[in-house]
Design a protein around this nucleic acid. Structure first.
Lengths: 148, 148
DNA sequence: GGCTGATTATCAGTACTACTGACGATCAGT
DNA sequence: ACTGATCGTCAGTAGTACTGATAATCAGCC
C-alpha cells in the first residue's frame, strides 16, 4: 500500500484491533461452517449440548452468555435443520429439554474440525508461542475475575 | 464460581474469546467516553481528522474501514455536537471537506485520555509484557499481509 | 387445597449497526 | 458535448440484542 508511514493512532487502539480481529475470525468461521449449513453462533450451542448431554434453554443460554429470548430463534433454526430436538421436561413442564440429534452430533464433530482449521488460518501470522499467549490473554481480559 | 471443572470447549474458542473481549472493551470505552458525549466509534473519526488536518468523507471512511454510507450519519451526529464541520471542497464540488472544530479538538484530546484509561483497565489482568504482546498479536491477525 | 410469587419459554416491538441499491450532482477523459 | 466514474445522500434490508409482556407452570405458605 501507499502510506505505511502514516500509522495512525487509532490503528493501535484496542477497540479497533479487537473489532477487526473479531470480524476476520467471524468471517473465516462463517466460510468454514458454510458447507455444514450452520452459522458460527450455532456451533457453541451444539458444543454445550454435547457437553451437558441435555439442557434447558435457559441453562444453555446463560452458560453461553446469550439472552434467553435470543436462544428461542437459535434453537428454532437448529431444530428446523434437525440438529437438535426439544422435548418436554419430565417433571417440570415449563422447561424444554434440548438434546443433540444423531445428525446434530455428526455435524458438530465435522464442523468443529472445520472451525479448528479456520482458527489455524486466523492464527497463521503468529508463531505457536504467540498464538498460545494470545488465547490466554484474551481469556484473561474477556473474563476478568473482578468483572461484574 | 461453582464449576471450574467444566471448562467447556467453546470457552477457549477464538470466536467466543474475541467477541467477549471486544464487548468488554466496547463497554469500558463507552463508559469512559460518556462524560464527553461521544460514542466509541466517533473517537477514531476525530483522530483521523486531527491527523489529516482535513479529509473528504470518503477518505475518512475508507481509512477507518467504515462504509461511506455509514459515515454520513456519523458525521451528522458529530456536526450536530459541533465537533466537526463540513465545508464544500474548493475545486471539487462533489466533496465535502471535513475538519475538526476547536471544540472537536478539545474533546478529542480529553476523550483520548479517558479512552487510554479504559484500555488500561481492560488490560489490568495482564502484565506489561503480555499487554504489549496482545496488542501486537491483534494487529497481526486483524490485518494479515495476505488478506484480501 | 388454594393463593401468591417466581420461573420458563415465547413473542412483539425497539434500537443499533452494516450494508445494498439507487439517486442527483459533479468531475475527468475523449 | 458526451460517456463513465466519483461523491455524498437517502431508503430499504438484514442481523443482532435487548426490553416488556404473556401464558403456562412450579414452589412455598397459610
Amino acid at each position: 500500500m501507499a502510506n505505511d508511514e502514516v500509522d495512525g493512532r487509532w490503528r493501535t487502539r484496542l477497540g479497533y484491533l479487537l473489532k477487526h480481529a473479531q470480524l476476520r475470525m467471524a468471517e473465516l468461521n462463517a466460510q468454514a461452517l458454510r458447507p455444514y449449513g450452520i452459522a458460527a453462533r450455532e456451533l457453541p450451542i451444539l458444543f454445550i449440548l454435547d457437553e451437558l448431554g441435555a439442557a434447558s434453554q435457559q441453562e444453555a443460554a446463560t452458560r453461553l452468555g446469550v439472552d434467553r429470548t435470543s436462544m428461542v430463534a437459535l434453537l428454532d433454526a437448529l431444530e428446523d435443520k434437525g440438529l437438535v430436538s426439544r422435548r418436554p421436561h419430565a417433571t417440570d413442564r415449563r422447561r424444554n429439554v434440548v438434546v443433540l440429534t444423531e445428525s446434530g452430533a455428526d455435524i458438530m464433530a465435522r464442523a468443529a474440525r472445520a472451525s479448528d482449521a479456520a482458527e489455524r488460518e486466523f492464527l497463521a501470522p503468529l508463531d505457536a508461542d504467540d498464538a498460545n499467549r494470545l488465547r490466554r490473554a484474551l481469556g484473561a481480559v474477556a473474563h476478568p475475575p473482578d468483572a461484574d
